[in-house]
């Protein structure tokens, strides 16, 4: 094993100068970035791009819209799943309030992931056996149809990963034009969270004869409800 100073000094000698002591002045970057004019447009382009990737999605304006949309997508399945597996619907501790109340109206019982077990191995296994993982989102990207989620003690990274279906909620005001804006906003917060997950559509692969297959490791079906409040 090599020590850090030795390693770095070796590079400096290859570069033919001592290692700078101050951060080098950042390079100038000027690329015209993708921009839309308002929140509404961003929401609709976001949705369009999400759907183009193979995700399902809808914009809802009220709790009623929300109920309808969830019923249309899942019907009575959650009740059926629940009969076989009381932990079939696994969710973050906190979801947008309009979503919380929709779930209680529908009487779909949610298991809160972080409280599902004390042992992480058990929690992973519970999430792996669940039918639907339910999360919020911190930000979205219109240009690429992407949802962005920061890790947090009340959440759980695997809720959007292990179940075969993932349902996410996002408020229209959280949708940004492009990746640059998202990264700028996250870096303004200081030290980033342990994990920032950016998800654009379902899990996919073209590894066999370049034939696109959906759902090799991550969720096979992905749903997003855009909340226009």
């Amino acid at each position: 094993m090599t020590n850090t100073n030795e390693f770095i000094n070796h590079l400096a000698s290859k570069l033919g100068r001592p290692t700078p002591t101050e951060t080098p002045p950042p390079v100038e970057i000027s690329v015209p970035q993708y921009r839309l004019s308002n929140t509404e447009e961003r929401a609709s382009i976001f949705l369009q791009n999400w759907q183009a990737l193979g995700g399902k999605g809808a914009i809802v304006k009220s709790e009623n819209d929300m109920l309808q949309c969830l019923k249309e997508w899942f019907g009575d399945l959650p009740i059926t799943w629940f009969k076989d597996n009381p932990q079939a619907l696994i969710a973050w501790d906190m979801l947008p309030s309009i979503a919380e109340s929709a779930f209680s109206t529908l009487n779909w019982p949610l298991t809160r992931y972080t409280q599902s077990s004390l042992d992480p191995r058990d929690r992973y296994s519970i999430a792996a056996h669940a039918e639907l993982g339910i999360t919020g989102s911190d930000l979205g990207i219109a240009l690429s149809g992407t949802i962005v989620m920061n890790s947090d003690p009340l959440r759980g990274r695997v809720v959007s990963l292990l179940p075969p279906r993932h349902l996410a909620f996002i408020e229209t005001t959280k949708i940004r034009n492009n990746l640059f804006e998202v990264l700028e906003e996250i870096s303004a917060l200081g030290t980033p969270p342990a994990a920032i997950e950016m998800i654009s559509g379902p899990s996919r692969t073209s590894d066999i004869e370049m034939d696109l297959s959906i759902g090799v490791h991550g969720p096979i079906e992905v749903y997003v409800v855009v909340i226009d409040n």
Partner: peptide, 20 residues
Amino acid sequence: RLSSYTTILTPPKKSADSDG
């Protein structure tokens, strides 16, 4: 435009984080 999953890890996990 972006790969399906772009993950930015800033390890290790915070002590209260449930996963990772």
